[in-house]
Simulated assay, not measured.
Amino acid sequence: MTPAARASRPLVWAGAAVFAVAVVLVLLTVVRPSAASTAGSGATEAAPAESSADVGFARDMSVHHQQAVEMAFLIRDRTTDASVRRLAYDIINTQANQRGMMLGWLESWGRPKSSDRPRMEWMGHPVTASDGSLMPGMATDTELDELRAAKGREAEVLFLRLMTVHHRAGAEMARAAAGSAVTDEIRHLAAGMARAQESEISLMADMLEERGATP
């Protein structure tokens, strides 16, 4: 290698290094979102406020669902009727799964799963508990004791009546959340929940009629 070639080699390396740095900077500019873009996406993904319908609904409906699952387990063990037991299993599986989703969202939003805020405050009409019934539609402690003591057709009719009232109130809450929530998760879940519970209300009316009872 000539002295001139040896002298020019550092300049070639330096030029290559500069080119490599330039390529990296271009790639970073293309791949990384701008600060404004990052800030904008953060704003759209912010957790709903503590006082929002999303948080209030997720908390309240989790409690509402918990009692529905409890009543479904009670009737499952107090009847041999296939249609009633099938309905009970559907309620257990569906509402336990939905409850888990709502509690998971509360955790992901950094919101506590329980609160001292009045139930249904997010709907504009806070309520207080009465005989263990924390919200409209929920069975009282007295009614749950009656269900525990009943068997056969008596238990079936009582369960269907209590669950019909439970579903009516639940569907009303779900429609309110579907109309006022800010997150897609709650809006979509609540809308589907309202439709499903209204369908089961119709089913339970038919089941009550088959047993010579009214809702």
Rank of each mutant, 00 (worst) to 15 (best):
A82N: 08
A82T: 12
V26D: 10
A43P: 00
R86F: 02
G42D: 14
A88S: 12
R32V: 11
I91N: 03
F19C: 11
R32H: 01
L28K: 00
R111G: 06
A35F: 08
A49F: 00
A36Q: 13
A43D: 12
Q95C: 07
A82P: 09
Y89S: 14
I91S: 03
F73K: 14
T29Q: 10
V84F: 01
A43F: 04
L87V: 01
V69G: 08
G56K: 01
A20Y: 13
L28S: 02
Q98R: 03
D77T: 12
A49L: 08
G56A: 01
H64T: 04
V69R: 10
V31S: 00
A5G: 05
S34W: 06
R86Y: 04
M61Q: 09
T29P: 00
A68C: 05
A17L: 15
T38C: 02
A5P: 00
A20L: 15
V24P: 00
A14I: 09
R59I: 02
V30G: 00
P48L: 04
D81S: 13
V23K: 05
E50M: 05
A46Y: 01
H65Q: 11
Q66F: 01
A5L: 15
L11G: 09
E107V: 12
T44E: 12
W105Q: 14
R85N: 13
G40K: 08
D81E: 15
M61P: 04
A88G: 09
